[in-house]
Each structure stands twice: as C-alpha cells, then as structure tokens.
C-alpha cells in the first residue's frame, strides 16, 4: 500500500501476530498525529504482543506479519532503538539507581549539548508536570502518580515520534487516575504525537476520545493457554 508512505502518523498495515501458527490478532489501522487509538481486550488477547511488535521487542516464540510505518518510514525491520517510539509501561520503571533529574537527563538526546542546558530542559519538564524541585529526589520516594508523571516526561524528552501506552494508569488509584491521564493525553496532543493506548478500562477509552479497537478473545477458558483459537478484531465505535 504505497499511500502509507506519504501519510504522517503511525500506520499498522495488515498486521497479524501468530503463536505457534495460531493467529493471535489482526489489525489494520492508521493513527494521525495528535490522535489516540485505544485498543481494548481481556488479558491474553495479545495487546502487549502488539505493542511489543510495534516497539521492536516481539518475543522469539511469536511470529508477526504486516508492516509498520511511522511518518512514512517503514519501521518493521528496524531495531527497537532506531524506531523513535516512546513506550510507557504499567509501572513507571524509573531507573532506581538514578535521581529523578538523572532519569530525565538520560532521555534527552546527546545532540542537545551543554550540561547546564540539558539540566534546564529537565527542570522545565518537571515544572510542566507540577513537580518543581523534585529533581534531586530518589524516584522511590515519589508517589505512584508522581512517578508516572516523571516517566511520561522521560518518554517525551527522548523526542519520540509516536507514543505507545501499555496501561500506564492501571497502577494509579481512582483519584489520581483521571488527573494523570488527562496530563498524558494533553502532552501527547501538544507534541502532535500519534498515540496507541492499550487498556481494559472503559473510562480510559472514553477519556482518550478517539477510535476504539476491541481485540476479542474466543479461547476456551479452561486454563490451558497453549492452544489459541483464531480471533478477529473488528468493531470500531
């Protein structure tokens, strides 16, 4: 599909993932810059495998077909570190051996020169998410919501061209959840990034406001996970 080449945004072209020959999921979609596509499905429906495939971490046991384009560039065969795709996980995964500031400076590209300059950028990023003065803190002393906010800024400071969110709000309590979610979506729109959000929370999907894909899971649930039944992704709403 040559038209994919000219499109800005993240394109998944006829992507299908198989486990031991049995199809796990199929998806074909396009996410324009600044838009959010939400993917919903039960655990085991292959959500994480899809993210792994897009980010370049597909496990050797899985087999994937189809192509990924980001702003017209084919990423399918590039190693993860060359894809410029930011990833947020279920847990914030701040590096425990670095300070909050170091975590952020770690992400700023090396072409941004000058220690003071880099530090200023990181400081500004903290201010943007309301964490002024947290730079010298040990990440472990931050609350869950604060850690997620730092993780968000760390992801964005690396200047990604797309954002994958793997249930990053699931570890937050109800009160913080909406607030942090709004912040993440707002930052993504501000940076004009195509966003793919994986979640099993309806509220996340509603808040994202974009299209929703449902990954259906038809496997017979007797605890035996070896045999995967084919499943179809369709239903947009």
């Amino acid at each position: 599909m040559p038209e994919a080449l000219d499109r800005a945004g993240l394109t998944l072209e006829a992507v299908s993932i198989h486990v031991d020959g049995a199809p796990l999921l199929d998806i074909d979609c396009h996410i324009p810059p600044g838009n959010i596509l939400t993917i919903m499905g039960e655990s085991g429906s292959g959500k994480s495998s899809l993210l792994d495939f897009i980010a370049g971490f597909l496990k050797p046991a899985l087999h994937a077909e189809g192509r990924i384009f980001l702003n017209g560039k084919n990423l399918t065969d590039l190693p993860a570190q060359e894809r410029h795709i930011g990833l947020m996980f279920q847990s914030p995964l701040l590096f425990p051996h670095m300070s909050v500031m170091q975590n952020l400076m770690f992400a700023i590209p090396a072409r941004v020169r000058g220690r003071q300059h880099r530090k200023e950028i990181a400081r500004q990023a903290l201010e943007d998410v309301g964490l002024n003065g947290f730079g010298d803190r040990d990440p472990a002393t931050l609350s869950g919501g604060q850690q997620t906010r730092v993780a968000l800024m760390r992801t964005l400071l690396a200047q990604p061209m797309a954002l994958l969110l793997d249930e990053p709000f699931s570890s937050l309590d109800q009160a913080r959840r909406a607030e942090v979610r709004e912040l993440v979506f707002c930052q993504a729109r501000k940076n004009d990034l195509p966003v793919l959000l994986v979640t099993h929370d309806e509220e996340d999907a509603l808040a994202a406001g974009g299209l929703v894909h449902f990954l259906d899971n038809h496997k017979n649930n007797n605890g035996c996970s070896k045999v995967q039944q084919p499943q179809i992704s369709i239903a947009k709403r």
Partner: peptide, 25 residues
C-alpha cells in the same frame, strides 16, 4: 526485561542500556 525495553525505546543501544540501566542495578 522491561528495563531493557525502556532503554531501547529511549533510543539506547543494547550495550549502553545494559551498562547504564541494568548493570548498576
């Protein structure tokens, strides 16, 4: 494994990720 992923998704090479993110831990 997730730390490896986060290093790579921030654009770090495999060895850099190991040395700067994994090894200190």
């Amino acid at each position: 494994r997730d730390f490896y992923k986060s290093g790579a998704s921030l654009g770090y090479g495999r060895m850099s990720t190991f040395i700067k993110v994994i090894l200190p831990q």
